[in-house]
């Protein structure tokens, strides 16, 4: 059955958005990512204008992350304190990133910077996560044992002022650490036009040394707030949120997020990281192909990356 989307101004078979929502929601519940880096290109592939795809995806992530946060909160896997500091940093970073995009647009090379940031960040994060997870699985070391091993980075973070204990995550950090790294992710997310979950998760795992299951719940919590802000701004300033498309997507994604949260508890932290790393790398390879193969159309709608 086809439905007409009033803002996207196109018609779509309802199986497509509900199915996409289910798959991406599943990833969201499993890994604590919003899934924007997957969903937005998929929606564009199915004929949704790029600006509407990005804005509407934010709207459906609000639903998926609410559903996911709720499921993780019920089992005590959301560190609200850490989430709020990351949010504060992310908010500042987002503002800086948006200004950065304006400068790049004025210089005329925004697209190149955005695409390269995408490939590099996804490639580095995916490769590192895959390598690290496989190594630790081989050594059969638990997350707790690894946490004891102090790196130079760890020592530096410990030396910063305003140290505080994050009870839920079982870690002690300076307040500056989540704010600064949250800000860094916020800048990149704004440049890339994504929520930044796939960047925030590795930051929490490898820099903040939080346990994987708390990482997922906390990441969803901060994604929820980011996406509420983005949805409102997109609807208010650009008129690009398609309510019908969002409803179809969230029909799938809210259920997917719940199923993902259930499956996630059955998988080990290392296994989750390996699967996420493989997905991130697969998306990287797809982007590299898109960049190097001659496109079928040399003209495209304005407004997308």
């Amino acid at each position: 059955m086809y439905l007409y989307l009033p803002v996207a101004l196109t018609s779509i078979n309802i199986i497509v958005p509900v199915g996409l929502g289910l798959v991406v929601g599943l990833l969201s519940g499993l890994f604590g990512v919003g899934g924007g880096f997957l969903m937005t290109p998929l929606l564009i592939m199915f004929g949704i204008p790029s600006t509407v795809a990005a804005a509407t995806d934010s709207n459906q992530i609000v639903a998926a992350s609410t559903s996911g946060t709720y499921a993780h909160w019920k089992v005590g896997n959301v560190d609200f304190k850490m989430g709020l500091y990351l949010l504060a940093g992310g908010f500042i970073g987002g503002l800086v990133g948006v200004q950065g995009i304006k400068v790049l647009n004025a210089m005329g090379n925004a697209d190149f910077v955005i695409k390269m940031t995408y490939v590099l960040m996804l490639g580095i994060v995916g490769s590192y996560m895959l390598f690290e997870s496989l190594m630790s699985m081989r050594k059969k070391k638990s997350e707790e044992v690894k946490a004891d091993k102090e790196s130079a980075m760890g020592k530096f973070l410990k030396s910063l002022p305003l140290q505080t204990h994050f009870e839920k995550s079982g870690v002690t950090h300076s307040l500056l650490v989540p704010v600064i790294f949250g800000g860094f992710v916020g800048i990149l997310a704004a440049i890339m036009g994504v929520g930044g979950g796939f960047l925030m998760v590795p930051v929490m795992v490898y820099i903040l040394r939080m346990p994987m299951h708390v990482v997922v719940g906390t990441s969803l919590f901060q994604i929820l707030f980011n996406c509420i802000e983005v949805t409102f701004l997109q609807a208010y300033t650009n008129h690009t949120v398609d309510f019908i498309l969002a409803v179809l997507l969230l029909l799938g994604s809210t259920v997917g997020a719940q199923v993902g949260a259930v499956f996630g508890r059955k998988l080990k932290g290392e296994q989750l990281k390996v699967i996420l790393a493989v997905i991130v790398l697969a998306v990287t390879v797809k982007i590299v192909f898109d960049l190097t193969l001659t496109p079928s159309l040399l003209l495209g709608q304005s407004g997308g990356h």
Binding site: N59, Q60, V62, A63, A64, S65, T66, S67, G68, T69, Y70, A71, K74, I228, T231, F232, Q234, A235, Y236, T237, H239, V241, F243, A246, V247, L250, L251, T254, V255, A257, Q258
Partner: peptide, 23 residues
Amino acid sequence: AGLYGAISIIAALGAGFGVGLVF
């Protein structure tokens, strides 16, 4: 647009909580 944005967010929050409660 303001009301439209607010309704979109509230509907998404409601759907997320609703499904969360059901599960």
